[in-house]
């Protein structure tokens, strides 16, 4: 008997506090696998956000710091400038990044900070109980858009991977989704590529991951995955928006 699948060595024994069907656990695991495969454990610092992944510092046997809401890119700037040889991972959700921390992420991109941002977009505030985020889809029902999101009062969803790719300081920007085994492998490949660019000293590398929130969306886990594949990708297409490593300036 050979072991084909096990808990990554960089994971602690802590149980994950995510809801059933949540995508964070998958994305956390992918990060753990890459760190382990590339032997980067010794030089990794992960900056965690405020949101559903706020306790993720407890899951990893690497240096971890929990930032204030929205401020992870600013804190990541301080850390990366101090330790340029380290792999600095800034992990953010959509409420954290696109609402509270829009200035911090935009200016990290404008300055071309040489760290990686893993942006988990589930189009809702999960931890606070399912309120509207700037990424919430039109007509989506949340606790603060009980009649569906309307443009008149709340504007439109924000496509971060596209926006960040427009900045000169961005080296790589891709949107992926953790909705199927194939898509999970694509996500892993994207995050790994982003980490590699960082370790080569390139500019901001940005991976947006569409992630299910069955609790917030009030859907069964399988339906939430189908919802991403059928509906969410229409607003947030899966694509590489910038990859200067491929000699490709813009999509």
């Amino acid at each position: 008997m050979s072991i084909v699948y096990q808990r990554p060595e960089v994971f602690t024994n802590e149980y994950m506090k995510y809801c059933g069907g949540c995508g964070h656990g998958i994305i956390n695991r992918l990060i753990g696998e890459i760190i382990e495969e590339q032997n980067w454990k010794e030089k990794t610092v992960i900056v965690w956000p405020i949101g559903c992944s706020v306790y993720a510092d407890k899951y990893f046997k690497v240096d971890s710091i929990c930032a204030l809401h929205g401020r992870a890119p600013a804190m990541g700037t301080g850390i990366k400038r101090s330790c340029p040889e380290d792999l600095v991972i800034v992990y953010q959700g959509d409420g954290d990044m696109v609402s509270e921390g829009m200035a911090e992420i935009m200016h990290a991109g404008i300055r071309g900070e040489k760290f990686t941002v893993v942006f988990v977009n589930n189009a809702i505030y999960g931890m606070t109980g399912g309120q509207m985020a700037p990424t919430t889809l039109m007509e989506q029902v949340t606790t603060t858009t009980p009649y569906g999101r309307k443009q008149e009062n709340t504007g439109n969803p924000v496509n971060m991977a596209e926006i960040i790719s427009q900045l000169e300081g961005c080296y790589y920007s891709e949107r992926v989704a953790v909705t199927s085994p194939a898509n999970i492998q694509k996500t892993k490949k994207a995050i790994k590529k982003a980490f590699q660019y960082q370790m080569e000293g390139k500019g901001l590398s940005f991976v947006e991951v569409l992630s299910p929130c069955p609790t917030g969306w009030k859907m069964k886990p399988a339906d939430a995955l189908k919802h991403i594949n059928d509906i969410v990708v229409k607003q947030y297409p899966l694509a590489v928006f910038k990859d200067l490593g491929r000699g490709e300036k813009q999509l």
Binding site: E42, V45, W48, V62, S64, C66, S82
Partner: peptide
């Protein structure tokens, strides 16, 4: 939190 880089333990700063 400066990366373990030879340190025997990992550090976790949280509030």
């Amino acid at each position: 939190c400066d990366g373990m880089n030879g340190r025997s333990h990992y550090n976790d700063i949280t509030t």
